[in-house]
Amino acid sequence: MSDDTPDTPEQPDKAADKAADKAADKAADKAARPAEAPQPEKPTPMPKPRTPNLALRRLKAGFKPSRGQAIVAVVLALVACVAVVQVRVNRADDGYQNARREDLIAILDGLGQNTRRLESEIADLEERKNSLSSSADKAQTAREQAEAQIRTLGILAGTMPAVGPGVRITLNDPQGKMTSSNLLDAIEELRDAGAEAIQINGTVRVVASTDFVDNAPGIGIDGQKVSSPYVIEAIGESHNLAEAANFPGGLVSEVTGPQVGGTAEVTELESVSITALHAPEEHRYARPAPSPTK
């Protein structure tokens, strides 16, 4: 036996070559054929227009009322309401017409009782109104009287300002001889002539408890020193006050005489304003007395 063996072809290599040849042939055929043109897309069909339903439109138009139809409907509704009311009234009248005599008498009695009850209530209300009005009038009158009394007492006590006709008296004492007695005499003469409010030098209000003391040069009034010229303003009947000051032997004569040697000027005024106020002090002993019982 010989060691040399014949060479056998490899089967797998042949099969691979055949497959490659077939693929190459297909590619060549495909390249040789012309490219197919793309197919155009089919157009979308348009929707068909809907034909209006004439019968339905006519039916809708028939249900839509016109202005004239609406007016007629309102008039008919009013006529129906009037008819219903008239029928009810007629029925009520028929009820009274067909009622028995005893029933009518009972109805009249009931109406009479209601009338008397209402009249009684009206009378009570009228009486209450008159009572309230009288009470309100009395209260208002009492309030007004109290306010007037407060104003009067305030002016007399010097706790309220005052205005009215009066006089202004100016006393000059160049030598300083005027004393508290001279000034007190002047105040007393003015009070006797009807002076209702008095102030001196625009700062001191003269009241019942005002005191005058000598404090040369000048005069002390309620602890406040005043000096010449002394200006006395008083509210009252201006002519009477001026006559009291100019009376022979009175204020003017005393000041202009040799005892004082001063001057005096009296002026009547239509309006005198007194603004100085007196600060009242609490009484140490005096207390209001109880009202007398009836």
Rank of each mutant, 00 (worst) to 15 (best):
M1C: 08
M1Q: 08
A15Q: 03
A15R: 05
D17F: 09
K18F: 11
K22Q: 13
A24I: 10
A35L: 04
P38Y: 11
P38S: 11
Q39A: 15
P40Q: 08
P43Q: 00
F63H: 15
F63P: 06
K64W: 02
R67N: 14
A70L: 03
L76W: 13
V87L: 05
V87F: 10
V89I: 12
D94R: 04
D94W: 06
Y96E: 11
A99H: 07
E102C: 07
L108Q: 13
G110E: 04
G112H: 06
L118Q: 11
S120A: 06
D124G: 13
R128G: 12
S134F: 04
Q140S: 11
T141G: 12
Q149C: 04
T152P: 01
A157V: 08
G158C: 04
T159P: 04
V163A: 15
V167N: 05
S181I: 05
N182I: 02
L184P: 05
E188V: 15
R191H: 11
G194H: 06
E196N: 12
T203P: 00
R205G: 07
V207G: 12
D214R: 02
G218V: 01
I219H: 00
G220L: 01
G220V: 06
S228E: 02
I232V: 13
A234R: 06
A234H: 05
G236I: 07
S238N: 09
H239Y: 08
N240K: 13
A244S: 12
V252A: 06
G262S: 00
T263R: 03
V266Y: 01
E270Q: 09
V272T: 11
I274W: 01
A279G: 10
P280A: 07
R284P: 07
A286M: 02
A289Y: 07
